[in-house]
Amino acid sequence: MFIINCPYCGERDQSEFSCGGEAHIERPKQPTELSDDQWAEYLFMRKNIKGIQFERWNHIHGCRKWFNVVRDTSNDKIHAVYKMGERPPIK
């Protein structure tokens, strides 16, 4: 169980949150313009990194806000949290 520093509520136990998978995958603005392959790329393809991964989390049992987390999947260390729409603070 990690502790996640919700950008709205502060540090809380992981059990208050749910993970929404990889971050920074923007929904295409004009899906109809895309080929099957391009659409499938958006729809299905996700990275599964051992190491630094950018993830979306939702404080589902708290403020209900979505935000981004930079987590090292090899040791669960969270390097940063930042709000939706903000740029990742680290590369």
Binding site: S18, G20, R27, N58, I60, R64, K65, W66, M84, G85
Partner: peptide, 13 residues
Amino acid sequence: LSKLEDYLQTEWP
């Protein structure tokens, strides 16, 4: 509800 909030907060702010 969670899915709709997700779209509102992330895709369609």
